[in-house]
Design a protein around this nucleic acid. Structure first.
Length: 180
DNA sequence: TCTAGGATCGGCT
DNA sequence: GCCGATCCTAGAT
C-alpha cells in the first residue's frame, strides 16, 4: 500500500480552491505488531480510533504539540494499520501553499516533511476520519495515471522511531525520485 | 489528577 | 548540527 501511494495525487479543497500535490515519500506502520505504531499491542484510544475503522480514511494526529501528521488507514476494521504521508511536490495551488507556509521558505522545502505538508494543505485534526476516496471530500487521493517505477524507489528505515527497538530498522520508508 | 515524552520544524551557531 | 517551541496523549497513581 505504501509503495502504491507513491505518485498518487493528493487534493485539498478549502474555501472553493484546490491544492494539488503528488506524493513522493511515505512510511508504513504495521499495526498491533509494530512497536513504532500508535496501535502497537492493540492500543485503542480516542486518538487512534480512526485507525481501527475503515480503510481509506485519513488518520490525522498532532506531534510534539506543534505539527500535524497525515496518514491513510490501509487495511480495515480491526486491523489498525496506516501509511504516513511524509512528502510531496506541489502540482497546483502553489500560491495557496505559499500563503499557508511561513514566508521565505525555499521552493523545494514547502512540502518535504509530514508537518510541512499538513501546514501547506491546511490539514488539522478536524479532518481526522475524512474519506480520502470520496470524490466530494475536502481531502482526497486520486490516480492520474502517473506511475513510479520500483527501481526509482528508495527504501530505508523510518524516521524518528528510535524508541521502537528492532522495528526502528525495518525498511518501511519509501521515497520516489519524482521529487525532482 | 499528574507527568513524561513525542511518526517535527525552523532558527541559530 | 543543535536546540527550543508547545500541548496533547497515554499511562501511572
Amino acid at each position: 500500500m505504501a509503495r502504491g501511494l507513491l505518485g498518487k495525487v493528493l487534493v485539498r479543497t478549502e474555501g472553493g480552491c484546490d491544492t494539488v500535490l503528488r506524493i513522493n515519500e511515505v512510511e508504513a506502520y504495521l499495526g498491533i505488531g509494530d512497536p513504532a505504531c500508535h496501535t502497537f499491542q492493540g492500543r485503542r484510544t480516542p486518538r487512534t480510533e480512526t485507525m481501527w475503522g475503515e480503510a481509506g480514511m485519513a488518520y490525522v494526529y498532532l506531534v510534539y504539540g506543534v505539527h500535524h501528521c497525515l496518514n491513510v488507514v490501509t487495511v480495515g476494521p480491526g486491523q489498525p494499520e496506516a501509511v504516513l504521508i511524509r512528502g510531496a511536490t506541489v502540482m497546483d495551488g502553489h500560491d495557496l501553499v505559499r500563503s499557508r507556509r511561513a514566508p521565505g521558505v525555499e521552493e523545494g522545502r514547502l512540502t518535504d516533511g509530514p508537518g510541512k505538508l499538513c501546514q501547506a494543505l491546511a490539514v488539522t485534526r478536524d479532518l481526522d476520519g475524512i474519506d480520502l476516496c470520496g470524490p466530494q471530500s475536502d481531502l482526497r487521493i486520486c490516480d492520474d495515471g502517473f506511475r513510479v517505477l520500483d527501481e526509482r524507489t528508495l527504501q530505508t528505515p523510518r524516521v524518528g522511531v528510535d524508541y521502537a527497538g528492532e522495528a526502528a530498522s525495518w525498511p518501511l520508508r519509501y521515497v520516489s525520485d519524482s521529487r525532482v
